[in-house]
Nucleic acid binder design. Structure first.
Lengths: 347, 347
DNA sequence: CAGTCGGCTGCAAACGTGTGCATCACTTGA
DNA sequence: TCAAGTGATGCACACGTTTGCAGCCGACTG
C-alpha cells in the first residue's frame, strides 16, 4: 500500500463548460444536447454535438456518477484469473457488461482472506453497482457490503453459498452422476473418485453424484477409492499415486475437474500405464485444451462463458428493478472422448 | 448499448458530512483526520477515526478523484482473457496494481476494431491513470488518447509497436533461435516452422530466430517447411497436416506457441506418429499445462506473470514522475522436456 | 392591444471530497 | 497588559456533472 504519494496529474481534458463556452450556451444546454433531450433546439443541439466531437469531449464518469448515484461499474472477484475456468467466466461477464455500458473491475483474491477484505473495501469505495464472486470459499464475506449498501451480489459456483445472495451454479451432482454412469455402462466396477480438498460445496456434490450412480448400479462403495487433490494438476498427481499404489487398482477414475485429470493423466503415463487401456479417466469442466489432450478427455462440459453471461444478466436485471430468479442451476453436458473405454478383460 | 435506462439507485452510503455531524466537527476536520494530517488534534482525530470505522464509512473514490484529478485506476485491454498467456499477464498486472492502491478495469477487444474504439472511449470517460495493452494488433490505435490526455500507455508483446509508447516484449528472436539450436544439437536437420498468420511482429521475429539458428548451423532454408496457423490449436492442426503431407516430412517442428504445439501434437498423434520418436516438437510460452502434456513439452518459458508485473511497475514509475526506461525486452528461457529427442536413424 | 402559451435557455443547487486561507482560543514572553 | 505566536478548527471554493425551476422571447388568441 505504498506509492500513492507524489503522483503528478495528467493533462486536463475538456470539460462540459469548455464546450459551453465555445458554443456560447450554458453548460446545462450542452448536457441536454448530449443526452438528446427534446427540450433543446435541434439545430443548436447538432452544433453542440459537432463541437463536442471535434474537441474530443468525453464526460467525466466520476462527476456523473457523483450526481446520479450510479457508477455503471461492477466488481468481479476471482481467486486467480490464471485458472482457465475462471477466465472463461470472466470473459462472459465482460461481454454482457460491455454491451450494456458497464465497466468491470477485476480483482484477484488468491483465496487470501486479508486480500478479500481489501477487495471489498476497494469495491465499496468505487461504489460499484454490483459484484460477482467466482469460485470463492468466502462469498459470505461479501454479504456485509450488501447489507450496508444494498449492492446486489451474484455468487458463481461458490463453495459456501448464502441464501441472501443470488447465485449461478453448475449442477455438480448431476454431472458427476452422468459421467460415473457412463463409466459403469462401459463395464467398469472399480471406479475411484479424485476430489478437491478445498472445494467444499462442489466437491461434496460431485462426490454425492458419484455415489448416487454407484448406488443406482448396486456397486458397493469402497472408501479406499476416494482420494483428494487440490483441484490442480499438482495435487492430483500425488492423489493419483495413492490410487496406483492400491493392491487392487481402480479401472477408472472420476476427477474433480479437468486440471486434476491432467495431473492424473501425467501420473498414470509416468507409471507406465495406458489410458484408456489400463485406466479410464474422466474430468469435469471441458476446458478448451481437453479436446486436444492425448488421449482427448471425456468430461462434463461446464458452459463457463454462458454462466458468466448469465451472472451479469442477472445483475443487470436486479439493477433494472426486474424481479429476477434467485438461484440458477445450469446443467453440465457429458462429452465422450477417447479417455474412456471398456475395462480390460480380467485374466 | 441498451439498458442504461430506468436503473434504480442503491442505498446511499455514509458521507463525510454524516461523520462530521456525528463528531460535531466540520467535514474538513474529518477529511484531515482520516488522512492523518498533523494539524488536527490527536485525540479528536482518533475519535473521528473510530466513528468512521464504526459507521463503515468509505470515502467516495469518484468525489475524491474529481478534486485530485487522479482516479487510481488503470485500464487493461486484452484480445481475450481466455488466452492463458494473457490471463497470466493480467494476473501480474493486477498484483502490482492492488499493492499500490490501483484498481484495474478489464476489457476484451476480441481483436475487433469497433470494439477497441469503444474500449478507448470507456477508459477515457473513466479517466484511467494509465493503460496496458496486451498482445493487440492495433496498439497504435490507443495513441490518440495518449496525445490528448497524456495518459501513459504500456504495450505488452504488441504486434505493431509504436515508438511513442512504452513497451515490454519477450525476446522472440532469441527464444526461437535457442529452441531451434536445441533441435539442431540433437541432430535434426529437417526442421519446420509452424507460425501464426496473425502475429505480425512476433511471428516475424520468431521466424527470424529460427532462420538465424539454421544459418548458424549451415542448414539450407526450405520454404516448404514454413507453414502458418492462427496461434491457436485449431489452426495448428490444419497447418501440421500440410507438413505431414510433405514427401519428405520434417523430423522436428518449431511452433509459434504452446497452444499451436498442442494442436500440432493432436494432429501428429491422430496420424499415427509418435513424439518424439517420429517427430520432435517444441513450443513457446511454457503454459502451466505444458509440463503435464503427453509427452511434456519442450518450450521457451515466457515469464508472463513477471512481464505483467513489469508493465504495471513501469506505469507506476511514469505516474510517479520517475524517468523510466522506454522499452524492456525480457529473455525467454529454454525448458527441455520429453517432446524432443534425437531424430530416428535414417534407414 | 393585452394576455397567454409554448419552445427554448440559463440559474442554481446538489453530489462528496480536498485544501488554502482566515479565524479563534489559548499560551508565552517582554 | 499587550503583542506575538502556536495549535486547532471552520469557511468557502473547486472539481464536472445532472436536473428542477424560473425566466425570456416570440407568436397566437380574443
Amino acid at each position: 500500500m505504498s506509492g500513492r504519494n507524489e503522483i503528478k496529474p495528467p493533462a486536463k481534458p475538456a470539460s462540459i463548460k469548455d464546450i459551453a463556452r465555445l458554443a456560447k450556451v450554458s453548460h446545462s444546454t450542452v448536457s441536454r444536447a448530449l443526452h438528446n433531450h427534446p427540450l433543446v433546439n435541434a439545430k443548436t443541439a447538432e452544433r453542440i454535438r459537432q463541437l463536442a466531437r471535434k474537441h474530443g469531449y468525453r464526460p467525466s464518469a466520476a462527476a456523473r456518477s457523483l450526481v446520479t448515484q450510479r457508477s455503471f461499474t461492477i466488481g468481479v472477484v476471482v481467486t486467480t484469473i490464471s485458472d482457465p475456468f475462471v477466465a472463461g467466466v470472466v470473459g462472459g461477464i465482460e461481454e454482457i457488461a460491455a454491451a450494456h455500458g458497464f465497466s468491470v473491475f477485476l480483482a484477484n483474491s488468491n483465496a487470501d482472506p486479508e486480500q478479500e477484505v481489501r477487495v471489498v473495501q476497494s469495491f465499496d469505495e468505487r461504489r460499484v453497482d454490483g459484484i460477482v464472486v467466482t469460485s470463492s470459499r468466502v462469498g459470505a464475506l461479501y454479504v456485509p457490503v450488501l447489507s450496508r449498501r444494498q449492492v446486489p451480489i451474484v455468487l458463481l459456483n461458490n463453495q459456501h453459498p448464502s441464501q441472501f445472495a443470488y447465485s449461478v451454479v453448475i449442477n455438480s451432482t448431476q454431472g458427476a452422476s452422468d459421467v460415473t454412469a457412463h463409466l459403469i455402462e462401459l463395464g467398469h466396477r472399480r471406479i475411484a473418485f479424485l476430489g478437491d480438498e478445498f472445494g467444499r460445496q462442489s466437491d461434496t456434490e460431485r462426490l454425492a453424484g458419484y455415489r448416487e450412480a454407484l448406488t443406482q448400479a448396486e456397486i458397493p462403495f469402497n472408501r479406499h477409492y476416494i482420494v483428494h487433490g487440490d483441484g490442480k494438476a499438482e495435487g492430483a498427481i500425488t492423489a493419483m499415486g495413492k490410487l496406483l499404489a492400491l493392491p487392487q487398482r481402480p479401472t477408472a477414475v472420476v476427477c474433480y475437474n479437468d486440471m486434476s485429470a491432467l495431473g492424473a493423466m501425467h501420473c498414470i503415463h509416468g507409471a507406465g500405464f495406458t489410458i484408456p487401456g489400463d485406466i479410464s479417466l474422466v474430468g469435469f469442466d471441458d476446458l478448451h485444451m481437453s479436446q486436444y489432450l492425448n488421449p482427448p478427455l471425456t468430461t462434463i462440459r461446464q458452459p463457463m462463458h454462458e454462466m458468466g453471461r448469465l451472472a451479469m444478466q442477472t445483475l443487470i436485471a436486479i439493477l433494472s428493478g426486474v424481479i429476477s430468479q434467485q438461484n440458477f442451476t445450469v446443467p453440465g453436458q457429458l462429452i465422450v472422448r477417447a479417455s474412456t473405454a471398456p475395462p480390460r478383460k480380467e485374466p
